[in-house]
Structure formats: C-alpha cells, structure tokens
Design a protein around this nucleic acid. Sequence first.
RNA 1: GGGGGCGUAGCUCAGCUUGGUUAGAGCACUCGACUGUCACUCGAGAGGUCGCGGGUUCGAGCCCCGUCGCUCCCGCCA
Length: 592
Amino acid sequence: MFATTQRSHLCGALRLSDAGTAVTLGGWVHRSRNLGGLVFIDLRDREGLLQVNFGPDWAGADVIAAAAAVGVESVVIIEGTVMPRPAEMRNADLATGEVEVQATSIRVVGPAVTPALPVARGKNDKLPAEELRLRHRYLDLRRPELQANLMLRHRLLQVTRRFLSDRGFLELETPILTKPTPEGARDYLVPSRVHPGEFYALPQSPQIYKQLFMCCGFDRYFQLARCFRDEDLRQDRQPEFTQIDIEASFIGREDIMALSEELVACIWREAGHEVAAPFQRMSYADCMERYGCDRPDLRYGLEVHDFTASFATLDFGVTRSVIDAGGRVRGIRVPGGAAWSRKQVDELEGLAKSAGAGGLLRVKKAEGKLEGPVAKFLTPEAEEALALADGDLALLVAATDRISSPALDRVRQECARRLGLVDEHARHFLWVTDFPMFDKDPVTGALAAVHHPFTAANADDVAQYPDAPEKWRALAYDCVLNGLELGGGSIRTSDPRVQSRMFTLLGIGDEAEQERRFGFLLEGLRAGAPPHGGIAFGFDRMSMLLSGGTSLRDVIAFPKTTAARALFENAPTTVPAADLAELNIRSTVDGE
RNA sequence: GGGGGCGUAGCUCAGCUUGGUUAGAGCACUCGACUGUCACUCGAGAGGUCGCGGGUUCGAGCCCCGUCGCUCCCGCCA
C-alpha cells in the first residue's frame, strides 16, 4: 500500500518473512553507529525503526563513507536487501529486530541541519522543555510517541465517522464564521471588511445550527466540529478544540444515552479497551450528596455522609451556629487517616479552605479513644453516627451545601490519592442525569442556565412547580469517566413559545432583543420543529485519555500555550496599520 | 484578573543555602581511531548575553526590585 515510484516498503514494517526481498526505503536517520569498516543507520518512518547495515561485503567504500557522513534527521533513500539477523544479533526491543537491510546505495535527499532538539532519546532522557518542543514542533512531532498519538487520533476519528454514518447519521458542516452570542464563554471575533464595524464570531459550538438541521428534517446529524472559546487555558483546555457533535430527532434521553454508550465502547475498543455497558447512572442530586461533585470519580469510595441529625444536639459552637442557620455537618471517613500528622491534615484543611470552607473539623480514633477539638462534645449518638473504627479519621465541614460540597470534593480526591485508592487502570463510566435547569445566584437571585438555554425541562417538574423554575430538573445528561467529563447533552426545547420563556427566565432581554439575538433559532422552531436532542463529546480529551497522556497538547498537532499563543508559527501577531484600516479597526494598544 | 513553580552550552542539569581567581557534567556537535553495533566504544576539540533591565556591593549566575517567557492552579470556561 505504501509503495511508490520512489520506495518499496515502510522501514518499520519489515519482518523476518520479508527476508531476501530487495527493497528501496525512504526515511529519517534516527541514529547511526560507525564501527570503522561497518556503519549502522537506524532508519525511521511513521511505522518505526529499522537497522540498515553498510558493510564492505555488499557496499562500496564510497557508499560506506557516505553513510558514515550523513547527519541525524536527514532524509535518505537507500537500496538493499532484507536479511535475517544472526540469532545473537537480534534486537528484541525493535519490531523489526529480527532483520536488517544490507544496503548497497544511499542517497541523501533531504539533508538536515543539526536538530535543535534531540528526536532520538535515551531510555532515561527527559523531554526538552515544552516551550522548546512547541517552538520546534516539526522536530517534536517526529518523536515516535507523538506519531503514535496522532495516528491513534486518526483512527478514533475514522471509527467515529464509520460508527455514526453506519447508523444513518449525516456528516453536515456548519459555518466557522458565525454570529456572536454574548452568552457564556467569550467569542473569538472576526471583523468584516465588507461591512464596516460589524463582526463575525467563531463558533463556541454548532449548537443552534444543529438544531436548525433538525427543523430541516436532517433527522440524524453529526460533525467532528472545531469549536473556539476565548477563555484562559488549562492543561485540558485549548482555545480551539474538536468535539463529536451529535443531534437527532424523534428521540428521548434513553435513545441518546444508548447510542452514546455504543459509540464510546466503539472508540475505546479501537484503542484496545473493552467497555462494559450500560453505564452506571446517578442523579445530580445524589452525586452532590454522596460526592460533593457533579462528575464524581467512582473508582474509589470515601463517600460523603450527613451527620447533621446527630450533631444537632451538640453543645459545640461551630456546628451549632451552622445548623441553626440551616447548614449541615457533612464529611468523609478516612480509613487509616488517624496516622496522618498534624501537618498532613492541615494541608487537607488548606484544600478545603481554598475551596471556600471556613475550616475542616477532624475527629480521629486512636487506641479506642476519640481525639480532636470536637471530641469532648460528642454525644453517644454522634459517636455512633461517625462510626469510626480504630485508626479512622473523620473530616467534616459545617456549612451550607454550596460551600461544603466543593470543599469535601477536593478533600475526598486528595485523600484517595494519598491512600493509593485510585486504580489507574480502572474505567468507571457514569451518566449524571437530572441536573437542575437553573443555577440561582445566591446574591442577586438571577437565574443562569446550568447546561445551556436550549435545554428542555422535566415536564413533571414544570407542572408541579410552575412558578419555581429553580426547582425544575433539566433533561440533560453528562457522560463521566473517572471524574472527567467526556461529554454532555440534553433534550432541547422544540416549542418556540417555551424557548422564548426560557430566554425571559434567564433575563435575556425582551421579545425584540430575543428576536435580534436568537431569532434565527426561534424562526426555525416556529416553522415546525420535531422533538430533538443530542450530545457532544470532547474528542481531544478522549484522544488524550486513550493515548495515555495527561496533556491535550500531546494529541493536538499544533497546540497553543497556556497564554493562548502558537509558538511555532508565532501567532497571534500584530498586523500592519494599513490592514487594520481596511477592516475599519484601530488598535488601542500603545505603540501601535 | 490573582497565586505557586521554572528560566545557566544545541538538549538535560549541577553550581545559588553562606556573593570571591578561568561557570562545570552527561548527551548532541567537529576531528581522529575502530568490521557486529543497536543509548557502540575510545581519544581530542569547539561550544556561555547565567531570560532581559535596573539596584546593592570592592566584587553578582548567586542577594534585592522590576520585567518577559513557559508551566501548574484559582477566577473564568452558558
């Protein structure tokens, strides 16, 4: 398949069964070893490494001299014969290690300057600084690890396309130049030359377009969609990213969740992992109650418990005042935590405080005795509720749930890490369902969409609490793996009047304002919209997990730094004033 | 927008605690030797704006202030 007019095989593909074959190979000089009369070159292509041998019995002196002179990372084309290696000279570390090619000619077709970064690395060599790897990305991407990552990414893209296409989903493209939506994340804006003073935005997601496809009757859509958000970056967040975007008509939650489980299993299988479906499900309320988090890592326990009832009678000021004010006392039991030093527990308290808690109450049981600031106040009922075994440590937060949940989440995760409870090979998939529709700002009372403004509400909740939207649950669902959000979606509002009411509840302007900003969606819905819904998966994150990496930058060919800068091509950059003038734009930055 | 870490040869790092002659090592590079290596080995050599700017000092890679870059985290990410 890879044979061309210039080469016959891929270097890394040759095996013992190819012995005796005359080959012409093109590749990069990974490393070379010059033993005097004998020269070895490890030739590399995307398939792997191959040892090429230049010896006087089959190659002329001029060929050997040329092989000895070629620098690493140069591109060469060699001719020769595949030979089995003598048993004692085989290399078990190399897929091609049972053979070598005895070369009769070498031609340097792409001489390389001395590389700024090493591509061939020793077993214990550290990677160069990421800044340098990004600046010299053309070299970094030659590394077998990154080649493997991008080739895996390709396979995951293809298997996703095949899976969805086979099920009748149409791959439809949506615009990259779109309308600014001043909700949610910041948009990347693109000035219009033709229309002075007006701007496009790059899409944060194809959300509205895919809903319009449903209105058009393309009842199953998908796209491997590039999305853009002008927010600050993280290890797992890039300003442009790829999502598997799916939408379908005449479906409910169960349809989307079943389809998604199949898709995820298919993708994981492509990477060599079997996934058990159906996935566990848990309501948002249960997640928050038991784990303090809407995407819990279920590879370990350390569940959060409520001790409010048994602490209500305690004559202890801290818990007393919180409970009287409507708060709760919640916490986790840490087996073996009693052995931790004061300093170690203080560090945990630091985590809780950084998450907003006032402090972390500790009770430990050592040699049958309870210890800690609250110990002497404990009633027999409270002791029984804590249910500490010898060596256990209880870590409690007395506060409103809004404060205690994130604090206990942080503490729980750190305790699991310290206790070695996190099984790196385990995969615990989870559906989180029944999110609230709205998040109510505790200060202003304003409602904000937890998912997005197009999500449909649970009809029973709307009927039961018509005037208390903060009690409505959304028909939304998140797919979680080991505490990471893989994707999320919802059933959408397909009634334009209901959609308009949602905008009103969210404080998105009057009717005229709604028409101006979201009219193109409302018009589509009014023209006859089927019930529909969908989901989007973070494809980069999936690729990262399946390639075994921890940074999105290792599965994206040309990523941005955390300062949202491209170091290789050096973007963004200033442009000549004349270019700005043509766009009717003037920079306010000094010195421009 | 805020906080932490890092920045010394092409690469990875030591040196900084306690300021003091000519800033070191490994790899890579150049030259030489070597016919079975596979991180070849051996010998020799070259290679430095100690991120940048300012300050303290008789003297700064080292101390202080500022700044830039990368990175991790918080905010943010409907």
